[in-house]
Design a binder for these strands. Structure first.
Length: 457
RNA sequence: GGCGUCGUACCCAAGUGGUUUAAGGGAUCGGUUUGCAAAACCGCUAUUCGUCGGUUCGAAUCCGACCGACGCCUCCA
């Protein structure tokens, strides 16, 4: 099955066609670095990573960018509040974003452009818009004029019956948006010089110009959180498509929100979950699985019960994986029907819950064979391939250490003693030794074949 | 007010016209196995998909109304 993606431009699933062969260019709107990103933010960032991984699975060579918004009102507020510098604030939270991304196993992007590194290009770009009569100046601010751009409204139906009630006289049209903001007193030292005076670029222009510079204004896929669809993405594409002949992006993908108690998780509501803390308490694999266990276009509520459920799921996978012997990867890399079902699910608009279902059905099928003692070499290879395939997307199990080959001497000795106790039917000693091993971080289970040792994860 | 998304078992969550008398995970209960425990396996748990109508040979899936939740329209992943 070929890759299908839900395109916000058409509100339909479409077969993905790249602009040039096996190369795909993607851009995702990244964090505004005035604070550490919360779990809701990371739902979106993990979604970008999912897309990247699924594209790779389909043999595409991806060129990805996730920007760092380091010019923004909230950052300026923080700078004033803490009486510090812009760089001081932004570098701190940029680092936090990068560290958390990496601990959640988000594959590195090709670019993480910072708005501050593209201000000259932004000024140039805004001037081009003015020269083409698409933008106008008012009190040192530059606005994009939507009247001059007939295609405005690709994401949202615009109702134009409200202009009478609009008292804001600082711009011509209610929907005109800022390309350049004139310097205000509270901006302090945060400003850039331009032909229109001191000021700074507007958010929509930042993204547009970074895409223009890095990708020549042409993307295969543009992603973002659902809240950015309008007006951010509308404005971003309007200004750039007003002066270039081709689309800014052929596909636009939007991730739904993470809710807490039925409300959007946000910093302003104060209901956000601290990712760092959550990872520390549960491990990054569980957090990753939680974020991937619902489809990216559905609303998800956060609660501890779901995290606990994910923990159990991972335990189940790890237990299964501990039965699998690593195979030579070069032989027999053929996918069977089970593998293909998994791939098909992901190719159907990144349907991770369905893919998980396929994977767990396979696990149960193989566990049954193991229980019945009919699990053979071919099943092992199949399982190993599936684990590898599964991990290439979900990335939540440690495949390099399928078997614990380094068992400490102390643990080995205890196992020997326990076996002796068991041979003597000394159940009390056997149980004591089991408790002792448990305290040391090892789970021992008895089966017909003897003791099985598992390291606690 | 305008635009949009969603409502599936005890909880989570796929499915969006017939292969589904609804995947998968968690939970409960019962069973197999076991000295015990754990794990694993098997079985039970939605004749039903917010409600009411309509279209159709056939609908959870399409259409309409209503109820409920959420989001965007101002910064926001």
């Amino acid at each position: 099955m070929s890759l299908k993606l839900y395109n916000s431009l058409t509100s339909k699933k479409e077969i993905f066609k790249s602009i040039s062969g096996k190369k795909v260019k993607t851009y995702g709107c990244g964090p505004t670095v005035y604070n550490s990103p919360h779990l809701g933010n990371f739902r979106t960032f993990v979604f970008y990573d999912l897309l990247n991984r699924v594209l790779k699975m389909n043999g595409y060579k991806t060129e990805t960018a996730v920007n760092i918004t380091d010019i923004d009102d909230k950052i300026i507020d923080k700078v004033n509040e803490q009486k510090t510098t812009l760089k001081e604030v932004t570098s701190k939270y940029e680092l936090s974003f990068m560290e958390l991304s990496s601990s959640l196993k988000i594959l590195p992007n090709n670019y993480n452009p910072r708005a501050t590194d593209y201000v000259n290009q932004m000024i140039e770009f805004i001037q081009t818009l003015i020269d083409n009569d698409l933008a106008y100046e008012m009190d040192g601010n530059i606005f994009f004029s939507i009247e001059k751009y007939p295609h405005y409204g690709k994401f949202v139906k615009i109702n134009d019956d409200l202009e009478i009630e609009d008292i804001d006289l600082s711009k011509k049209n209610r929907s005109d948006f800022t390309l350049w903001k004139a310097r205000k007193e509270k901006d302090g030292e945060i400003f850039w010089k331009s032909q229109w005076g001191e000021g700074r670029p507007g958010w929509h222009t930042e993204c547009a110009v970074m895409i223009k510079t890095l990708f020549n204004g042409q993307l295969d896929i543009h992603c973002g959180g659902i809240d950015l669809k309008f007006p951010h993405h509308e404005n971003e594409s309007a200004q750039i498509e007003a002066i270039q002949k081709h689309n800014l992006s052929n596909y636009w993908l939007h991730a739904e929100h993470l809710n807490v108690d039925n409300e959007k998780m946000s910093k302003s509501l104060g209901n956000f979950v601290d990712v760092k803390k959550l990872i520390k308490e549960n491990g990054s694999n569980i957090v990753r699985l939680f974020l991937l266990s619902a489809h990216y276009r559905t609303k998800v509520s956060f609660n501890q019960k779901k995290i606990d459920d994910c923990k159990k799921m991972i335990n189940k996978i790890n237990r299964f994986a501990s039965n699998i012997i690593k195979s030579d990867e070069k032989i027999n890399l053929k996918f069977s029907e089970d593998h293909n079902k998994f791939i098909d699910a992901l190719n159907d608009d990144l349907n991770t819950p369905e893919a998980l279902g396929v994977f767990f059905s396979f696990v149960t099928k193989m566990n049954k064979k193991i229980a019945e003692n009919s699990f053979n070499d071919s099943d092992n290879i199949k399982s190993f391939i599936f684990l590898k395939l599964f991990n290439s997307i979900f990335d939540i199990i440690d495949l390099d250490n399928l078997q614990e080959n380094e068992i400490p001497k102390e643990v080995q000795d205890l196992l020997v003693s326990r076996q002796e106790a068991r041979d003597n039917k000394d159940w009390k000693l056997s149980d004591n030794l089991r408790d002792k091993l448990s305290e040391m971080g090892w789970i021992v289970e008895d089966s017909v074949d003897g003791q099985n040792l598992l390291k606690k994860k």
